[in-house]
Amino acid sequence: MSAYTFYPGCAMESNAKAYYTSLMAVAKPLGINLEEIEDWNCCGATEYVGMNLIPAYSLIARNLALAAKMGNKTVLSPCSACYLNLAKADHYMTERPALGEKVNEALAAGGLHYQPGSLDIRHLLDVLINDIGLDNLKAKVVRPLKGLRVAPYMGCMVPRPDYNNRWSDAEHPVELVEVLQAIGAEVVDFPGAATCCGGHMTQIGPETAFELIRRLISSAERSQADIMVTVCPMCQVNVDAYQGETNRHFGTNYQMPIVFFTQLVGLALGFPPDKLGFGTEITSTEKALARIGVDIPKPTEDTPHKQAGLPMPSCLRKNAKGKVQHAEKEAA
């Protein structure tokens, strides 16, 4: 058993419930022992840093200070954005001592302190590969996902900016590919593997986000993937839940499911799909999983139709010739 101080992050208890459920299921057989940080708070996502620097870093650092009290140097985060925020605060508080001092002055008002550089902040995928090991994972597979064509979607905030040189490549990382191959899936060549899902732009500038989501899904489709696999709650929500609106925006009819890598690992380890959070996705995984003979739990309600939706006003500049402009710029 390897023990880790666990920072789940807000998404794990809401929109990424499937990630939490499947992680909890596979942790034990894989020998990952998670101790949740007592009374952790939100990491501020990408919002707080864009408003007020010292409060934003103090918000993150409260978690670091609480984590340091847990007596285990290694902090594990399954969420890409949380992972980056925690790692970034630790890194910049070290690189710029003035930041570290100010943040600690704020923490002191709450009776806390954090020594920059004293923790190792790591993402779940890194732990799975480098601590648990691919051989170990392979040995535990009882249902290889043979015949399932998977697009490995790493996204941005895990391989980049990579302050501690943990990842194989900033733009063509192989970690997720290796995990998926270890569980017997057929990994397709996926050029979108480390590109952006649009982040918070689905909410504040949807046209920007829809274009990024479209590129991702069409890339996965061209590679004839049955399903996309992610390591990040934000990527999952954008591709899954906003796929309907993206279709509506472009007049397309994509039906590309996306799940967390822990859900597929769980299937390979023999867990039934309902113990892994399957069925909570908005874009159905039924067809994809049927390819490997897995029935997902029937949803108790109608899945919304892809075509449903009303005209979509832009929150940013109105752009009457939006699509033409996109096509030109993409070609240029």
């Binding site: 009374d39 010292i54 918000l59 003035a98 943040v103 008002a109």
Partner: peptide, 21 residues
Amino acid sequence: RTIKGMDQLTAILNKAKEMEL
């Protein structure tokens, strides 16, 4: 959902807001 240490967090953030880099 609300964390238990709201008072602590508020004290930290209020102090932080007095400072700038």
